[in-house]
Design a protein around this nucleic acid. Structure first.
Length: 297
DNA sequence: GGTAGACCTGGACGC
DNA sequence: GCGTCCAGGTCTACC
């Protein structure tokens, strides 16, 4: 079946899908030529389905297997969250209107950051991006999905993201030895066990009214989540008060404003402070000259 | 509060 | 083919 979910304008499908590297991580499959993003979703009933999304005139077009009214409502809620379809960026656009390096942001409707259906999944993805190369992140996520995700009935080579219960049951030894998560394995097991048991209501943070500082404190309590990872997750949660400063951030800021001289996280912070509560979005969507220095010669 | 070293994997490199 | 070095954030112990 096919249906459309409206988005608050302006909305640009490709801007959301390519907002960061999540589209390269299983169970997402992004076909840039066709302009489609596929995601293997496990519904609350346990049914595993393939959702194929693409751009519609005023939102998101969804192709899915036949769904009941209840299932369609669940899928609509999940995709609305994943694509931040109801988010309003008008204040952000107002704040950056005089900045040339952000000139295309409103025109391309940038601001939305692609999310996973659950914060649990986004926390695990984020932990697997820390202290490693992107190729290793892709491999670790693929291993997790292939080893512990539930298969799509029509194509068992494709699987949903593992549930907290399945990762809690997997155990640290297996996640180290077979999934190759290294020292991150105990972090994943600890989180999965606390979420699966109900001890930690991680999903409640998605709709939390806590001030960003307190929300950050909650995220930092999770093993494996430090300053970079918490800022990344805050961005996913729609809070852009903090900067996800990783080694790439140090490089681009060094090139942009410090003549390629080494910079510290404190210097990056000082450079972005003037953007206040928008600094995360400004940093994320800034047109870094470092990124196209090769083409610039 | 700040700092140093350990954690772990896989790619790059030299032999 | 083997050994060594390196990149990448967070944690823990220590000051």
């Amino acid at each position: 079946m096919q249906f459309t979910i409206p988005a608050r304008p302006p909305f640009n499908f490709r801007s959301v899908v390519s907002s960061h590297g999540w589209n390269q991580l299983q169970p997402f499959v992004y076909d840039e030529t066709a302009g489609t993003l596929s995601y293997i979703l496990r519904l609350s009933t346990g049914q595993v389905i393939d959702l194929v999304t693409t751009a519609a005139d005023s939102g998101l077009k969804v192709n899915s297997p036949r769904l009941s009214v209840k299932e369609k409502a669940e899928v609509t809620n999940i995709l609305t969250w994943m694509f931040a379809l109801d988010s309003d960026f008008s204040e952000f656009y107002q704040a950056i209107q005089d900045e040339p390096a952000l000139a295309n942001v409103e025109k391309l409707a940038r601001g939305r950051v692609l999310r996973s259906p659950t914060l649990f999944e986004d926390v695990i993805r984020t932990i697997l991006t820390t202290n490693t190369l992107w190729a290793a992140t892709r491999r670790m996520v693929a291993n997790l999905v292939q080893q512990f995700g539930e298969p799509l009935p029509s194509d068992p080579t494709r699987r949903a993201f593992p549930t907290a219960l399945s990762l809690a049951a997997a155990g640290e030894g297996r996640l180290r030895a077979e999934t190759r998560l290294g020292y991150r394995a105990p972090y994943i097991v600890d989180l999965a066990q606390r979420v699966a048991s109900g001890e930690f209501d991680l999903e409640a943070l998605k709709t939390s009214c806590l001030p960003t500082l307190e929300l950050r404190r909650e995220l930092l309590k999770i093993q494996g989540i430090g300053p970079y990872a918490s800022a990344n997750l805050l961005m996913i949660l729609g809070r852009s008060d903090y900067l996800p400063i990783d080694s790439w951030a140090l490089k681009v800021v060094s090139h942009e404003w410090h003549a390629d001289q080494p910079v510290t996280p404190a210097q990056v912070q000082a450079d972005m402070d003037k953007w206040g509560r928008w600094q995360g979005l400004v940093f994320w969507f800034w047109d870094w000259s470092y990124n196209h220095k090769d083409s610039a010669g």
